[in-house]
């Protein structure tokens, strides 16, 4: 049975007359990396802040690690968050702040020091570990803020826009670090960068107006297992030949993008088998510039149906 690290049911949070969360229900499987995608003001940050206990919901239920809503006496040290618009104390050093957090989480002095060393190395901040936060650049501070989420390896990590403000090299390093945590921790990431979500996450939830409109694995949402997109030099003339190669498959030609979208069912035997059969038939008609399985998450998000889960 799959356990859930976070379960929220019909969560409501009002801000004045507006409902920032309007009955939001979302379950995050243990060990998953869940991406939250939605427009500004959709409720992603509010959901995270509510799960972390910073905001009190007006209605609904939260079950965090099977222990009810967040309570520092039960969940302290097991949950970490990178909150939006929250600075670490500016006079503190990354090392000092993270060490204190580790000690608060119940780590011994030696374990806290080791964990701080590892996490600062993971975000490439070792050489500035003893500089005051005030003297660090925005990106460095952001990396320190991300690092504090992984001190002591908490079970649940909530990251609100973790890659915002990072240069490409550091963003890539952080992506690889988050990928290395897959399966070890339950991580929820809120981001507007759908490429990042697609690369990092195992699951994704679309949030609109305080509700989840769709939640599934990234592979399902992008049709990575039942759709192949070919970028071609020109339109294939003989679609029938392609259909003969993969019986039951359907084809759609998008002339503007020169994309051929092949959609197939389980009986086709999966992406690799379809590719094996389809590529020779395609190459006989035109050159193939690129092959991708499924849609991009951005395409999936933009073409989403507003079905509320």
């Amino acid at each position: 049975m799959i356990g859930f690290a976070i379960v929220t049911r019909n969560l409501v949070k009002r801000r004045g007359r507006q409902r920032a969360l309007d009955g939001l229900s979302l379950s995050v499987p243990r060990g998953a990396v869940m991406g939250m995608v939605g427009a500004n003001g959709a409720g992603k940050t509010t959901w995270m802040m509510t799960v972390a206990g910073f905001l009190r919901p007006d209605a609904g239920e939260i079950d965090l690690l099977g222990n009810g809503p967040f309570d520092a006496t039960r969940h302290g040290g097991r949950v970490a968050i990178l909150p939006q618009d929250s600075e670490l104390p500016l006079e503190d050093t990354p090392e000092g702040a993270l060490y204190r957090f580790g000690r608060l989480q119940g780590l011994t002095a030696a374990a806290a020091r080791r964990s701080v060393r590892e996490t600062l190395a993971a975000v490439n901040l070792t050489d500035r570990a003893r500089s005051r936060m005030r003297t660090l650049s925005h990106g460095m501070r952001k990396r320190a803020m991300v690092a504090q989420c992984f001190v002591g390896r908490p079970e649940v990590v909530l990251l609100d826009e973790p890659l915002n403000g990072l240069d490409p090299v550091e963003a890539d390093r952080l992506r690889r670090f988050i990928l290395s945590q897959r399966g070890r921790q339950t991580i929820v990431i809120s981001s507007h960068n759908l490429e990042d979500i697609e690369r990092l996450c195992t699951h994704v939830a679309f949030i609109e107006k305080g509700r989840v409109t769709r939640m599934d694995s990234v592979a399902s949402i992008t049709h990575a297992t039942d759709r192949i997109v070919f970028t071609l030099v020109h339109e294939p003339g003989n679609i029938a030949a392609l259909s003969a190669a993969v019986p039951g498959a359907s084809f759609e030609w998008r002339a503007a993008e020169r994309l051929l979208v092949c959609t197939f069912g389980d009986e086709a035997g999966g992406v690799a088998a379809v590719n094996r059969r389809l590529l020779p038939a395609l190459l006989a008609q035109t050159d193939v510039l690129a092959v991708a399985s499924g849609l991009s998450l951005e395409e999936a998000f933009l073409s989403r149906s507003p079905t509320v889960v």
């Binding site: 520092a72 040290g77 968050i81 989480q105």
Partner: peptide, 10 residues
């Protein structure tokens, strides 16, 4: 500053 949030999860 929001610094309190880093403490209140601990």
């Amino acid at each position: 500053s929001g610094a309190v949030r880093y403490m209140l999860v601990r």
